[in-house]
């Protein structure tokens, strides 16, 4: 309804003899429309340009790249850079390509996602249906804490995990992801469970069901949509993480983002831009696939942070 008012100035003149009848004449090209679409197309190009350059470069050979035209299409589709990025690109220390990083990221992402979502779901459920003294205060601190820069917690957490003997292992990264995923996910689940009819919970209580039985048999079966949203949020978030991986994972378990950065920024010798871009595309592929497959659910996931509790 908002665009039509822009045509106010061009209200048709009835005196010219055409009797107004039926729909208002709407020229296909109005100046307003042209401006709107031009601006949108300009920004579309800005957003698409890096993706194009990234993909095109990854299929080129180094001589083609040295020719100096990042727009140019590759002479022929060449997968050499991709193979090298996956199997043998050097990260400064080793030359095994990105594949170990990929599998490390998988090993980090899967358990971190499961643990963090499960804990947050239970939190949200307890906060809505089983309030206890101070539960709202804990929740408030949790939300406030999510805005504190991670750098504030880094060193104490290093010490704690070292004391527990898990520093530099997968467990440490999983715990850290669970901790820092907790605020947003708990908020998500708390809001979702809060939107379910309370009568269901009361009826289950009257039927004699307890905390866990209600959670597993009543709440979980109704929560599939929010689990999918949380899944998208966590998989992309954990996959894209750099800081926790580099600090807590230990050299054996470095995730893909860290490996990628090492390949591009720490490698010695002449940089191979095609390999770099192939590695970059590979790293971005997992979240991109999730993004394009999940569509509106992704939007819901990222907007969830904006919905206050």
């Amino acid at each position: 309804m908002s665009q039509t008012a822009t045509m106010a100035g061009s209200a048709p003149d009835t005196s010219v003899g055409v009797e107004p009848r039926g729909p208002r004449p709407k020229p296909f090209f109005t100046p307003t429309k042209i401006i709107i679409y031009s601006v949108l197309v300009f920004f579309t190009l800005y957003f698409l340009f890096p993706l194009y350059v990234m993909v095109v470069t990854s299929f080129k050979t180094m001589p083609e790249i040295r020719f100096g035209n990042i727009f140019a299409f590759p002479n022929q589709i060449n997968f050499d850079a991709w193979i090298k990025a996956w199997t043998s690109a050097c990260t400064g220390l080793t030359c095994e390509g990105l594949s170990p990083g990929f599998w490390n990221s998988v090993k980090i992402t899967i358990p971190s996602t499961i643990v963090s979502i499960f804990i947050a779901a239970v939190n949200g459920y307890a906060l809505i249906n089983w309030r206890f003294k101070g539960s709202e205060l804990f929740f408030a601190i949790l939300i406030f804490g999510s805005f504190i820069p991670y750098q504030v917690f880094l060193y104490p957490l290093v010490m704690i995990t070292r004391e527990m003997g898990i520093f530099g292992t997968l467990q440490a990264v999983i715990i850290v992801h669970t901790i820092f995923g907790m605020p947003i996910l708990t908020l998500l689940f708390r809001n979702y469970f809060g939107s379910l009819p309370q009568e269901l919970f009361k009826a289950a209580r009257v039927d004699g069901a307890g905390f866990w039985r209600i959670f597993f048999e009543i709440m979980l079966p109704m929560s599939l949509p929010i689990f999918v949203v949380a899944l998208i949020l966590q998989v992309t978030g954990i996959w894209n993480d750099f800081l926790f991986g580099v600090v807590f994972a230990g050299t054996k378990n470095l995730p893909m983002t860290v490996q990628l950065n090492n390949i591009v920024n720490s490698a010695q010798g002449t940089p191979e831009y095609n390999v770099n871009m192939a590695a970059t595309v590979l790293t971005g592929l997992v979240p991109l696939i999730i993004y394009f497959v999940s569509g509106k659910l992704f939007v819901r996931g990222v907007a969830a942070g904006a919905v206050k509790g």
Binding site: A5, M7, A8, A11, P12, T14, E19, P20, R21, G22, R24, P25
Partner: peptide
């Protein structure tokens, strides 16, 4: 169709 208000054809008016 058409709409008239006070005898004036307002079908295309804002």
């Amino acid at each position: 169709g058409q709409i008239f208000i006070n005898g004036k054809n307002v079908t295309w008016e804002e």
